[in-house]
Design a protein around this nucleic acid. Structure first.
Lengths: 161, 161
DNA sequence: TCTGTATTGTTGGTCGCACCAACGTTTGAA
DNA sequence: TTCAAACGTTGGTGCGACCAACAATACAGA
């Protein structure tokens, strides 16, 4: 993109959805570049982080916890299993399910990804002070949690409280 | 998506990039749904808003101001021209260029989109107080502007100040 | 006047994320 | 025994963001 032609119009300049989207593009690009150094994707990190903290679980349960779509979970589990970062075994008590377990290699990989992700977050937030970073996290958390609750309640919109 | 399986792992819960992405998905979904009522897309709004505020300009200049990719600008101009919301005419002084001008119908359409967009922003930000909304806008603006500056400086990364 | 570089607009893509539907197997309540 | 639901899988869709290559045009410089 060439140098810009001057400021955005007023309507767009402080439009929250546009600002959020713009920030997300930046954040995602930095994270994707960082993770690519280890041949990883965002769902890989999300899954390994979840397994590391909560222990073995079914794909469905992992999907419910992380919000990753079931079919994307299949792809993610396949990717990580192929590199031996996790183990997939049928649940003998319920043969509908696989039980997914992080491996020692997976833990090592997660440690690598932790460092890459931390560097990316630092770069992404570099224009902000520590206090501002915390404010941003608080505000975004409240937005996502409140809207996330609404989504889980299906088509019935809740009255704002 | 079913009801969640409990909290996210610590690593993901306050990850700025993930929170930003999550908020952007929500914001975009609300905006897309709102604009769809008028058969519009986000770039349509961005382009009409820019023409309304700054007057006629070439596609390239509009792309530089809005950040819309040149080929996406072609699609956007085509869409809006087809519905007579803008006029595209060759620049007689430089036949490489088209001059894009909003039409009266385009202004009317923009007014409709303004209302739809405002309602979507209100819903998106409904979990936040007015003060918090302003904080979010300030923080996101700083992030986007600082990183946007970096992008325009090509491959030379600036030292953080 | 000619040449070379840049600009403009267009065509034709890629890619990956987020999302969805349908199916077969298994489970368990009724 | 039946049926609805859960689980995992396959096989998609859609779209935004991004990119490359090309033809026509403009203009600076030799």
């Amino acid at each position: 993109m060439d140098t810009p032609e001057g400021p955005l119009p007023e309507r767009l300049r402080t439009l929250p959805s546009r600002l959020t989207n713009g920030a997300a593009l930046i954040a995602n690009r930095l994270v994707d570049q960082a993770l690519a150094q280890a041949g990883a994707r965002r769902y890989h990190y999300a899954l390994l982080a979840t397994l590391e903290e909560y222990g073995p679980a079914s794909q469905a349960a992992l999907g419910r916890r992380t919000g990753i779509d079931r079919s994307d979970m299949v792809t993610t589990v396949n990717d990580l299993a192929e590199r031996r970062f996790l183990d997939r075994a049928p649940d003998l008590e319920d043969r509908r399910r696989n039980i997914i377990t992080i491996t020692p290699a997976g833990r090592g990989h997660l440690a690598d990804l932790d460092r890459l992700i931390a560097a990316a977050q630092d770069e992404y937030l570099s224009p902000l002070s520590a206090a501002d970073r915390q404010s941003l996290i608080d505000l975004l958390t409240r937005l996502v949690e409140r809207h996330g609750d609404k989504r889980h309640q299906g088509a019935r919109p809740t009255a704002p409280s």
